[in-house]
Each structure stands twice: as structure tokens, then as C-alpha cells.
Write a protein that binds this DNA or RNA. Structure first.
Lengths: 227, 227
DNA sequence: CTATTCAGTGAACATACGTTCACTCAAAGT
DNA sequence: ACTTTGAGTGAACGTATGTTCACTGAATAG
């Protein structure tokens, strides 16, 4: 290929004015290739394959680079996997951050939270596919990294509940236990959401309903929990 | 290799008396090789690898047969995977059957149930490793087969609770929803149990404790649930 | 203007892979 | 006794894999 980028002499005016053309071309291009490799891996997994079944060569092929280039960005496949865990972790945390910003609707909060979550999962299909696919299987190191992200996520959730005055009578430890349970249930629901054949409104309603009822049950228990 | 099995002429007496030697040699030997292939696959996964990362050749190698022999038993790897789902499903159901036979201890039932479950998971490490590893990722067909097993398992559990008079005020639909939640939590705990470095009594106690508290919370909610 | 850096290249390598095929030879059927 | 069956064999095939290496050439630094 060799993307013949034209010289594009930078006029001092343009640079000073708006920083438009080839501002950091060197490091920026490298980062873009790295991102391409990660996206290529996620895309391939989007077709229903596990990370462990991907080969280095097909990833570089999908990213439009030669196999040897891979090593300029990652020592091996495990390192790529860990980068994807990090990337997915960001997506996970952003969900929490948005919920924090929005606040929760006072009534029917569970139903609408589930609805929002469902949309979010569908919008970030590849990341949730990666998380729920690799959190149980595959390489040990990747699995543990994901469990770590989940724990962090759950702890943040516990902190948020404390800060928002939800279930104020529970200790922080209990809130963490509760959050862990909620996170497990959410991730499990994500698999269902992603496996659902689109257009099946009936199945979809049943699935969402089941999810809502499970969360309702959990919070029902939390409300009468005594430490 | 060619296991040079001696002719072993069957004396009519022996056959009539105890059915000792080469009773069904043909079909039995075939079944044994098939089992060897399945065990080989599970063993390889026991070393922390996903099913999708196994190759047909290394499975036959570990089973002590030539690659071509594989096709005498399975059309392809997916079919092997489905056989493993079936096998693991049996292990799962046996847990329920034993619980049914034993009955539940009246007090501290949750703690002792968790303890029993932990032992069971450790004793059937490979099956639980397979289930929790492939239930989220890997091939679509295998994943759905596992989810099916899980649903069946949860439904049986709901039936058992109904039969044992546990939470009699709940509808069968609610019991199924509850069971689904419990199963999810159990499988999630299985991953933790299997990942736990042995000898770490402290971590182990914390993990078991967390598991117990999550179940307690769930059943607390179930007790005050109103349909 | 010149020298250095380094992301990406392309070829080469040894190995491993899935699948096929004609075969052997003991057990099962007649 | 004789024929048929079929699980397991061993060789061969084309293709894909991970990794290495010296290389090129544009973006940067001096």
C-alpha cells in the first residue's frame, strides 16, 4: 500500500492559527496503527469468535499492515488482549460516569435503568462482547485483568450509591457485596442482550422483564439487609 | 502404538458366569476412544486454554490416536464441543440430584450449601472450567448450548424448591427467575473458586463469605417478594 | 542542510495445521 | 469357514502460522 502522504509543507501561519495539518505526524500515526490493530481484533471477535482463536496474521491483515509491524506495538497477543481490557474498562466506567451525571429517575428507576443499559450495551457491542467472552475463558492473565476491572467498577458503583444516599443504612462493605452481585447480573444480561436475534420483540420484552425482576429482587433484599 | 490385544478366546463358561472378557469389544472400544478425545480436550483446557484455541491435531495427539481418527467420532470441532457441553450438563444436574437426595440442613443451610458446592466444583474442576469458560465466549453454537443447559438446570432447581416447600408463596415463574439469578451467581462463584490460588486460606474465606452473603441477600429478597 | 530515528516493509524460515485417501486387520455377521 | 465391516493407520497435500531480519524512506533532531 504505502499511503503516499503528500509532503504538505506546513505554513507557519496555519500551525500558529489552528494547528490544522500534520501536527504530530510521527507519534499520531503510530497511535493510529495501534488503534487499528485493536479495532481489527475487536471486529474479528464481533463475528462470533473468541480472542484466543484469532491469529496475529489475520489481525494485521484486517488492520492493513504487514505481520512484522505487530511487534512495533505489542510484544505478543497477550499484550494486545490487555490493551483491549483497558479499552473496554473505559467503556464500562463511562457508563457509570453518565449515570452519575444524569442521576436516577425517582420512580420506575429500575426499568428505565435497564432500558438505558440495554441501549448502551448495543451501542458498545464489541466491548461488551469482549468482556463477557473473555471474563470466564481464554488466557489466565486476560481473565484476571477483566475481573480486576469488574471489581473496580463494582467498588465505584458502591461509592456512588453511598454518595447518592441510596440505601444509607448499609455499610460500605455490604454495598460492595451488593454491587458485585449487580455487576454479575448486568454482565450476564449483556450476553443475553447481544445474543438476542433482532426484531424478536416478544423475546426481547421477556428478557428485559426478567432482568428487571432480578434486579428488583436484589434491591428488595438489600432494603431489609441487616449487617 | 497398535495396542496388541491378545485374542482372548471367550470361554462360554466365563461369558455365562460373569461376562468378564471382551464382552462388547467393538462398540466399547470405539466409545472409549471417543471418551479419550473428550477427556484430552478437557485436560488441555485445564491448563488454562480456551476450547477455540485447541487444535484437532493436539487433541488426537493427547488422546493417543492419529489425526484422521478424529473424524470417526466427530464431524468437526464443534461437534466435540457439543459433546463436552452434554457431558458437563450431566455433572451439573448430578449436583442437583445429590442435593435433592440429601435434603438441606435446617440451619446454616446457605453456608453449608456453599461449602458443598465449593467442594463439588473443585472435584469437577474441568467441567466447571469448561462451562464458565465457554458460556460467554467462543463459538456461538456452543455458547447457546450451554445457556440451554443452564436454563434447564435453573428450571429443575425451581421445581425442586416448589417440591420441597421452599418459598411456597412464590409463583413458579418467580421461582424460575430466582433460580436463574442463583445459577448466574453460582457459575460466577465457580470462576472465583477455580482461580483461587490454593493454600490462601484468607482469600478463600473472604470469597466464600462474599458468596454466602450474596445468596443470603437474594433469598432475603425472595422471602418478601410479592407477585 | 545533514544525520538520526523508527514505523512499516517484504522476503524467508521452520512448524503446525485440517483434511483426504488407500490401507490394515481384528471383530462381528453369515 | 468366509465375508463384511469399520476403527485406527500413515503418508501426503496445500495452506496458515509466529518470528527474524535487513531494508526503506519520511518525519524529526541537531
Amino acid at each position: 500500500m504505502t499511503v503516499r502522504k503528500l509532503p504538505l509543507r506546513k505554513s507557519a501561519a496555519a500551525v500558529a492559527a489552528l494547528d490544522i495539518d500534520t501536527p504530530e505526524s510521527r507519534g499520531v500515526r503510530k497511535q493510529r496503527t495501534k488503534t487499528n490493530l485493536q479495532s481489527a481484533a475487536l471486529d474479528l471477535m464481533g463475528a462470533g469468535r473468541g480472542f484466543a482463536s484469532l491469529s496475529l496474521r489475520e489481525i494485521t491483515r484486517a488492520a492493513g499492515v504487514v505481520p512484522a509491524s505487530f511487534y512495533r506495538h505489542f510484544r505478543d497477543m497477550d499484550e494486545l488482549g490487555l490493551a483491549l481490557v483497558e479499552e473496554s474498562g473505559v467503556t464500562l466506567r463511562r457508563l457509570l460516569r453518565e449515570a452519575r451525571r444524569t442521576g436516577l429517575p425517582p420512580t420506575h428507576m429500575l426499568r428505565s435503568s435497564v432500558s438505558i443499559y440495554k441501549t448502551y450495551v448495543e451501542q458498545h457491542r464489541l466491548h461488551f462482547l469482549f468482556i463477557s467472552g473473555e471474563r470466564g475463558g481464554g488466557s489466565t492473565v486476560i481473565r484476571k485483568a477483566i475481573r480486576n476491572e469488574e471489581t473496580h467498577f463494582a467498588n465505584e458503583m458502591a461509592q456512588d450509591m453511598r454518595a447518592m444516599g441510596i440505601l444509607p443504612e448499609l455499610s460500605i462493605g455490604t454495598l460492595q457485596m451488593l454491587s458485585g452481585l449487580v455487576v454479575t447480573t448486568m454482565i450476564n444480561a449483556a450476553i443475553d442482550i447481544l445474543d438476542l436475534p433482532s426484531g424478536q420483540a416478544r423475546l426481547e420484552r421477556e428478557m428485559v422483564d426478567n432482568f428487571v425482576r432480578q434486579l428488583r429482587l436484589i434491591f428488595l433484599g438489600a432494603r431489609i439487609w441487616r449487617d
